[in-house]
Design a protein around this nucleic acid. Structure first.
Lengths: 186, 186
DNA sequence: CAAAGCATTTGCCATTTGGCAAAAAGCATT
DNA sequence: AATGCTTTTTGCCAAATGGCAAATGCTTTG
């Protein structure tokens, strides 16, 4: 649980009481590999913090291809960017996961009780959105090999835990191309 | 100026006094085509609303290629996502522009005076970040022709106002490829 | 241990895109 | 109308990537 608090403290201050309140409002949840945490079209009002494991956000494009928009790994927050509206994408466990989950009600309690909570959270979300935007953006202008190399740099721990197919669908290349690229790199 | 207010009202309520305050804090600024509004490495603490024209956010990748991360056109807000820190990218006028600019001080005044201002603004920024992320993301898995076609759909008014080179650098393809694609589409 | 089921690699070939340089087209200025 | 400048289009060829199917490798399960 300490990880969770450390995480929030990076973005703002919390006193002891506030920290206790946060901890009181959270529940540990396990997800096994390949399970969907949330499905497109369904509400997603909880907020989750990843303790262990990797999630991916994905959707199907108009040709029916499954596309991974991004991965989220340990020590990151997962929250519906369009609060209150149903999710438009899937959130799937790529590995077995342990999450700390705030229910919608508990999260609301935090917002109402902790002065500055919204600010802290907005800060977190904005930064993580920027990061994702930057990563996705960079891919657009890179060739396939560079895409994979920067992926390795940015997510060194993911390469071994995530299937080729998922990585390929994140990088926007075919699985066989990715396989060939990996061969050529060594 | 009405546009500016309408824009904010989409995301939250403002009473007459608050609206007046917003209008009092804003200054009209003109930018001519190709001018940099802000340069990488410099502080960018103002907030701008585009009345007319198109800006682009761009940077140089490690091969020195200029990359357009996104375009921002009329009736959108431009703000440093990392408040207080210098900008890491360039903001350039792609056409002649008319902006409404809030200085850092004036913007702060609004935050301090208008209850809920931060909330409105966060809402705006979060949504626009999501939109950009979605657009950039989609490009990753599309082929060059599809990239251009979806660009046309999403920014129908931009195609005629922005140079081929800029569009190509946004789509992540070469200028000549783009030219060929346009030929094949008709 | 064998069989079944996935995940990954490979081969072969078609298609797409890039690189580079020249030509053509557009535009503004005189 | 002629000149110079920038943008866009083309041609030519090389390189990168995709599509598809078969082969190989790995893991799980009975």
């Amino acid at each position: 649980m300490e990880k969770l608090i450390d995480y929030f403290l990076q973005f703002g201050n919390l006193n002891k009481q506030q920290i206790e309140l946060v901890l009181k409002n959270v529940t540990e949840v396990s997800l096994s590999k390949d399970t969907y945490f949330v499905e497109a079209g369904k509400p997603f009002d909880q907020v989750a913090y990843i303790l262990e494991g990797v999630l991916r956000i994905c959707y199907y494009d108009n040709r029916g291809e499954e596309i991974t928009k991004y991965f989220i790994d340990e020590n990151h927050l997962v929250k519906n960017p369009y609060q209150g509206e149903p999710l438009t994408e899937y959130i799937q466990a790529v590995t077995d996961c342990k999450l700390l989950v705030f229910s919608a009600r508990h999260w609301l309690d935090l917002s109402n009780t902790i002065v500055g909570w919204e600010g802290i959270v907005n800060n977190i979300l904005q930064r993580s959105l920027m990061e994702k935007l930057d990563r996705r953006s960079a891919l657009v202008s890179e060739d396939a090999t560079t895409r994979y190399l920067t992926f390795l740099e940015k997510f060194p721990t993911l390469a071994n835990r995530v299937s080729l197919a998922h990585i390929a669908s994140y990088l926007g290349i075919t699985q066989s191309s990715l396989s060939r690229i990996r061969k050529n790199i060594r």
